[in-house]
Write a protein that binds this DNA or RNA. Structure first.
Lengths: 168, 168
DNA sequence: CTCAGTGCAAACCGTTTGCAGAACG
DNA sequence: CGTTCTGCAAACGGTTTGCACTGAG
């Protein structure tokens, strides 16, 4: 029998392996395990979640390695990095999923919903062109209340100035 | 003579003073100095820049106070907090300026250009409604190359997978 | 006078880095 | 075998917090 159970890398992980080889970088067991987890999940993962899930799967991989591997995944363009203002980053793979989508983020429960709008891309190009700017990518995040939280009766208290502008 | 040179708070600073009084909070000299600086600047200020500028103006105010005051300014809705992915936050006041604008951010020189689009707000409402989401605010950032950087011949190198998707 | 604000320095926390030992190729 | 990686722990840097002292109301 062989040395360890190598559960046959999924196609996406192999794609990452190809990237690593193209760059002359070693394809290590840790990198494959992290990639397998990220490509196997459909959410927006934090580093803590990744570490926890790896540990739950019997892997014991240090945070440093996770950060370093995520950096490679982001560079390969197979994974996208997000900052939803929580104080840490989240990572989402870009395969078998609508590319270049945007996010609705619930201010109450932090649930993230994805959406895609062709109009938005057109809008981006139009706006950018009007300023002589060459757009490469965009990030649209709409913050508010998701349907379940609205149903649960949550409201957003708005304690700014009663009459913010024009009252001097 | 009076005790110190109180250079007559600007209308915007008085607005902040009103907010503080409404909340039963003291209007301190530090808070006025910070507000004066923020409302007197038209850029997107970092805490370090604020501290430096205050110091240049003869004020000696600790970072902690700056953070605490910015928190109040943000809560009053007179100032907006931004995170352009630089590893720290920037602050921008919302007075005498187009409200709810969005940003074009140059990946080369970090220059930030503002723009406003009515269509975008409509798009936000439409998209959100389609998901049963109640939008409160949005954040659209378009990253790319600003006109001067394009003219300077800068290009964005794109070192991802040669053929990112569909090559399994 | 009293309670909140301020300044300083230490604590925090997500992320990065240095280094000795382990793996990849 | 040389080179890169990994894991650990320490370092980092922006932000927050605890506490004695100052100042606003």
């Amino acid at each position: 029998m062989s040395t360890e159970t190598q559960p046959a890398p999924s196609p996406f992980v192999r794609l990452f392996g190809r990237y690593l080889r193209d760059q002359g970088l070693p394809v290590t067991q840790q990198r494959e395990a992290i990639a397998e987890l990220v490509f196997g999940s459909d959410g927006h993962l934090s580093v803590d979640e990744i570490e926890r899930d790896l540990r739950a799967g019997g892997e014991r991989i240090g945070k440093a390695t996770i950060y370093r591997t995520l950096d490679l995944l982001v560079r390969s363009k197979l994974v996208e990095e997000h900052d939803f203002g929580e104080g840490f980053k989240r990572y989402e793979h870009r395969l078998s999923r609508q590319p270049d989508h945007d996010h609705l983020i619930c201010l109450e429960c932090s649930r993230v919903t994805e959406f895609k709008s062709r109009e938005l891309r057109e809008l981006q190009d139009r706006v950018a062109r009007a300023e002589g700017f060459r757009p490469s990518r965009h990030k649209l995040e709409i913050y508010g209340l998701c349907a379940p939280c609205q149903e649960a009766g949550v409201t957003l208290d708005d304690e700014g100035l009663t009459c913010p502008i024009e009252t001097v």
